[in-house]
């Protein structure tokens, strides 16, 4: 059953991600990216990351993609967009990268099953916390506000800087002078 779900989600993810790159109209690309985000959220649910699935839908599908659609419709670009002349080179590079990645996956040693003994996977190390049986959201919250408190504050700073930067970049003239 889990395998069935995985192949459904994976198939749709691969299909829509290829469509994002292949489609001519930016609106269709953004919409297929929306479908991909939802299926990635589904994949997160099968991996028992319910909080991240919800965040994926709310932040990616709800905020980021709406921003993209706003800009696509604001700019109203109708012109046909041909592929770049370096199409062949790009595809070749992509295939090389894919082959390399797949070789690494097949030649490396990865755990094929979830670790059955959580205590053996570094529970005693600082900064790592074992997935307990309580809710996923509670666990993330506890780790985020204890071990990763400093990166969390940095993340808020990044968001503030990005907000100021976006306003400064997109505003027409600041303080009366031409931007």
């Amino acid at each position: 059953m889990a395998t069935l779900f995985f192949f459904y989600f994976a198939g749709i993810i691969v299909l829509t991600s290829i469509l994002v790159v292949a489609l001519r109209n930016p609106i269709y690309s953004a919409l297929s990216l929306l479908i991909m985000f939802f299926h990635v959220a589904g994949l997160y649910v099968t991996l028992r990351a319910e909080f991240l699935a919800a965040v994926q839908v709310i932040v990616y599908a709800g905020a980021i993609l709406v921003l993209y659609l706003f800009v696509v419709m604001l700019l109203n670009v109708k012109r046909e967009d041909r592929y770049h002349p370096q199409f062949l080179l790009g595809t070749l590079l992509g295939l090389t990268l894919l082959t390399e990645g797949l070789l690494l996956v097949f030649r490396g040693t990865v755990p094929e099953q979830p670790a059955s003994v959580p205590a053996a996977t570094g529970a005693t190390q600082a900064g790592s916390s074992v997935l307990p049986l309580v809710g996923n959201t509670e666990t993330i919250g506890e780790v985020l506000f204890s071990t990763y408190l400093y990166p969390f504050e940095i993340a808020s700073l990044i968001l503030l800087v990005a907000m100021i930067g976006a306003i400064v970049l997109a505003k027409k003239d600041i303080g009366g002078r031409e931007a």
Binding site: P114, A115, P118, T121, G122, S129, V130, L131, T139
Partner: peptide
């Protein structure tokens, strides 16, 4: 994160 049972 799922396979190593680590929330990080």
């Amino acid at each position: 994160s799922y396979y190593l049972q680590n929330i990080a």
